[in-house]
Design a protein around this nucleic acid. Sequence first.
DNA 1: AGCGTGACGGTTGAC
DNA 2: TAGTCAACCGTCACG
Length: 158
Amino acid sequence: MCVGQGRVNQLGGVFINGRPLPNHTRLQIVEMAAAGVRPCVISRQLRVSHGCVSKILNRYQETGSIRPGVIGGSKARVSTPEVERRIEELRQESPGAYSWEIRDRLVKEGLCDKNNAPSISAISRFLKESAARAGGHKHSIDGILAGRRRDGRFHEGC
DNA sequence: AGCGTGACGGTTGAC
DNA sequence: TAGTCAACCGTCACG
């Protein structure tokens, strides 16, 4: 509480790191752009970085909304009970299986498709938790995902 | 000069 | 309850 995290950017504008711009500022950006004002002018006038103006306008074009995305929370873990059950089964069938192998199986078996299949880390986590629940039957899935960086910043080339 | 893009440091909130 | 982690944020710097 009592945030007080206001910082000043190169243009002299105040922003809170990690938090979206206030709604009225976002609205102003799209309104000015709609009125034909150039992004660089918007950026200077509102004292918002041009990268941000570009981002917000881009998003507005794509979604038709000025609102920021949903911040925080984690992706649903392993989507359905059915999928969870299948993962348990696969684990019992082949305890040494890698998370990606299990994921592959789920997709192949049609329990989920490529786009909505649980992430590797979700599977790994689910396995860990279910192993713990089952009474500490631990196998070394840990660390398989070690290379995964947050935010996908690490552009791992598949 | 203006713009697009990616790295970066940060916050949030479901799990 | 506290910790983890993947989503998002805006700024900055580079091409």
